[in-house]
Amino acid sequence: MAQTIEHFMKQSLFTFIISLREFLANKLNQYNTTLLYVITVKIAFVIVVGGINLFVELTEILKTETPATYDTAITDYVISYRRPGLTSYFKFMTNVGDVYGYLIVLGVFLLISLLVFKCWKYVVQATLILALATISNMVLKRFIDRARPGIEHLISVETLSYPSGHAMSAMAFYGFLIFLVTKFNIQKVMKYVLMITLITIILSIGISRVYLEVHFPSDIAGGFIAGFIWVVFCVLVFDLIELFKKDPQT
C-alpha cells in the first residue's frame, strides 16, 4: 500500500504542476510568454532531479535488508485477496501493459487523434515516451541486475526484476495520456472520467505484477518513479519545442 500512496502523491504533484502552469498562463501570458515557460522549466527541472534522486536512493536501499521486510509484508497482503475473478482481472491488466496491449491502445489512440482531434503528433509523442521508457528500462535492469522473486509465478517471465518494465511503461505512457487529457477541449466530466480510468489502469498494471508474484513491490515503486521522470522530462521538451516553433526568437 505504501507504493500506492507514493504514486498518488506523485500524481497529485503532477496535477499541481499542470494547474500552476494554467494559472500562470492566465495571469502572466498577456505580459510575458517567456516568463511562463522559464518558471515551468525550473519547476520541471526540480521534479526531474528530485525524481532521479529518489530513484537512486531507492536503488541504494535495495542493497540493505530493509526492502525485504516491506516487500514481503506488502506481497503477502496483496496475494491474501487472491480470488479467481481477481486473478483473471490482473492477468488481463498485465497483458494490457505488454507489447500487444500497447499496440492496440496506440491503434485506438491513432484513430481518435485523426478522426476527432485531426492531429497525429500526440500519437508520435506517446510512442516516443513509451520507447524511451522501454529502452531505458532494459538498460537499468541489466545495470542493477536484481533477480525475480524466488516464488512460484502465475505467469511466465524471463527478464530481470528491477525496475518493473510494466510499471515504468504504464506510468510513462498512460501518465502522458493523463497530461494530454488535461489539454484536450472536452467536457470536465469526461476529463475526470478519462483521468480516473487512466490512473486505475496504471495502478492495476503495477499491482498485477505483485499479485502474480513476478515482481517485488519495490520493483513497482522504482518503475513508477522512473516512468514519472520520463513524463515530466518529455512534456518539458515538447512544450519547449512548441514555444520555439511559435517564436524562434524566444
Rank of each mutant, 00 (worst) to 15 (best):
R142N: 13
V108Y: 10
F176I: 03
Q187C: 15
V189E: 14
V105A: 12
E152Q: 11
S161A: 06
Y174R: 00
T182H: 05
I129H: 02
R142P: 13
Y192I: 08
L103S: 11
K191S: 05
A172W: 00
V139T: 13
V108G: 11
G107Q: 08
T159V: 09
L180C: 06
M171L: 05
L103R: 09
G101P: 04
A126S: 15
M195A: 10
K183G: 02
A126Y: 04
I112L: 13
S208P: 06
F143M: 15
Y102M: 08
F109N: 10
S113N: 11
L203E: 07
Y102V: 07
T127Y: 07
A167F: 02
V157T: 11
S156P: 08
I129M: 06
I205H: 02
M171N: 03
S136G: 10
F179P: 01
I151C: 12
V210S: 01
L198A: 02
V193H: 08
S204L: 02
W120R: 15
I112N: 09
V123L: 14
A167L: 03
Y122W: 15
V189H: 13
A133W: 06
E158T: 15
P163M: 03
A170H: 00
Y102N: 07
I205Q: 02
T134K: 12
V123I: 15
A131V: 15
P163N: 02
L115S: 13
T197P: 09
H166E: 01
N137G: 12
H153S: 07
S204N: 04
L110M: 10
M171K: 01
V139D: 13
Y102Q: 06
A126C: 14
V210P: 00
I202E: 02
M190D: 15
Y102I: 07
L177M: 04
R148E: 05
V116W: 12
N137E: 14
M138P: 10
H166N: 02
A131H: 10
I144C: 06
Q125P: 08
Q187F: 13
I151D: 08
E152M: 12
V157D: 09
K118C: 08
I135F: 11
S208M: 06
S164C: 05
V189G: 10
K188Y: 14
I151M: 12
T159I: 06
R146G: 05
I104E: 10
Q187W: 13
G107W: 05
G107F: 09
I155T: 07
Y192V: 08
V108W: 09
D145F: 14
V157C: 09
I178E: 06
G206A: 05
S164H: 03
F173G: 03
V157P: 06
F179G: 00
L203P: 05
K188D: 14
V139S: 10
I201R: 00
W120Q: 14
R148C: 03
V181D: 03
I135S: 10
R148I: 03
V193Q: 09
